[in-house]
Simulated scan of single mutants.
Amino acid sequence: MDKIISFYFGRVLILGRTNVGKSTLLNQLVEKKIAITSHKINTTYFNITGIYNYNNYQIEYIDTPGFINKNNITHNLFINKNFDIILFVLDRNKWNDIEEKIIKIINNFSIPIIIIINKIDKISNKTILLPHINFIKNKISFIDLIMISAKNKLYISNIHKIIFKILPNKYHFFPKNYITNQTKELIISEIIRKYILKYIHNEIPYIIKIKVEPFIISSKTFTNNINILLYVKKISQKKILIGKNARILKFIISKSKNDIEIFLNKQISIKIKIKLK
């Protein structure tokens, strides 16, 4: 008689303040670079899904912007209770009104919460966190607490192990080779935006619109051509984006090309045009 295999599947919402390391954590959890990371605030504009498969377990991780308002998808997920577990990510012992607002929302739901204290690599004496952990216990009820460094891949596997124990007994929702809800064009646009954020140090990265024209990945060995349009509002913004002797634009193209080739596992050629809109 064939052995009956049980399948486990659940949706895990990653919450936390802007720049707490949620996107880096998502990339490490799904073992694929699908969300851009930056030291600048509001890097993630929308919810990003990453899928992790291990034997008969499947986890859908949802990275969220560092804010929750009535106009974004995260708010709708709460309204519809469309997730099974919450990862509440904290930056070491930082706590202010942002965390207070988040717990005010999640305390209204009887959903398992796992506290993730990130960036512990920046703390030499971990005992200073003990009073903070007691403080958290008085603020919110949680099933477990893990201290990690998402950037350095420390203790990431422990998160999976805890989640495996509480995943609902369900059939897998996604095909086994499914990784993210983002198209290849969207991921490439995010890679471009990452380097614009890095090399342009003002408000311009937040108002640029990026469009990657649809393309087909060739199965042959020749280079794939990718056309990218950057839309700006003013000529002055276009000049800043290009830089003196096109220096900034060349940096953006060079750095992005390397990341995109790693992502696609293909040689590519990038053409970027900047237009007014």
Score class of each variant (00 low, 15 high):
Gly243Asp: 09
Ile235Tyr: 12
Lys250Asn: 15
Lys211Cys: 03
Ile253Lys: 15
Ser218Ile: 09
Asp259Leu: 09
Ile217Thr: 13
Ser218Trp: 05
Leu230Ser: 02
Asp259Thr: 03
Thr221Asn: 15
Ile228Gly: 11
Ile262Tyr: 13
Ser254Asp: 14
Ala246Asp: 15
Lys239Gly: 00
Ser219Met: 08
Ile207Val: 14
Ile226Gly: 08
Lys244Arg: 13
Pro214Val: 03
Leu264Asn: 01
Ile260Glu: 11
Ile208Phe: 04
Ile228Ala: 04
Ser256Phe: 08
Pro214Cys: 03
Lys255Asp: 15
Ile207Tyr: 01
Lys239Ile: 15
Leu230Cys: 08
Thr223Pro: 03
Ile228His: 03
Asn227Gln: 08
Phe263Glu: 04
Asn224Gly: 02
Asn265Gly: 04
Asn245Ser: 14
Thr221Gln: 11
Ile240Ser: 01
Thr221Ala: 06
Lys266Val: 06
Asp259Glu: 15
Pro214Asp: 10
Leu249Asn: 03
Leu264Arg: 06
Ile228Thr: 08
Ile253Asp: 05
Thr223Asn: 12
Leu230Pro: 06
Ser236Phe: 06
Asn245Thr: 05
Lys209Phe: 05
Phe251Glu: 14
Lys233Ile: 09
Asn224Lys: 06
Val232Leu: 11
Glu261Ala: 03
Lys220Arg: 12
Leu230Gln: 06
Lys209Arg: 13
Ile242Ser: 03
Ile252Trp: 10
Leu230His: 06
Glu213Tyr: 12
Ile235Pro: 04
Asn225Glu: 10
Val212Thr: 12
Lys209His: 07
Lys209Pro: 00
Ala246Arg: 09
Phe251Leu: 15
Tyr231His: 10
Ile208His: 03
Asn245Arg: 14
Lys234Leu: 11
Phe215Glu: 05
Lys239Val: 13
Ser256Arg: 13
Arg247Gly: 01
Asn225Pro: 06
Phe222Asp: 13
Ser236Val: 02
Phe215Ser: 02
Gln237Leu: 02
Asn224Arg: 04
Ile207Lys: 13
Lys244Asp: 11
Val232Asn: 03
Tyr231Lys: 12
Ile252Asn: 11
Ser236Tyr: 06
Lys233Phe: 09
Ile210Asp: 00
Ala246Ser: 14
Lys220Glu: 13
Leu229Pro: 00
Ile240Gly: 02
Val212Gly: 00
Lys257Glu: 13
Ile235Asn: 14
Lys234Arg: 15
Ser254Arg: 15
Glu261Phe: 05
Asn227Glu: 12
Tyr231Cys: 03
Ile248Trp: 05
Glu261Leu: 01
Ile210His: 00
Ile240Met: 12
Leu230Asp: 02
Ser256Val: 10
Lys238Leu: 09
Leu249Cys: 04
Glu213Lys: 09
Lys239His: 07
Phe222Met: 07
Gln237Lys: 04
Phe215Trp: 04
Leu241His: 01
Phe251Trp: 12
Asn245Ala: 07
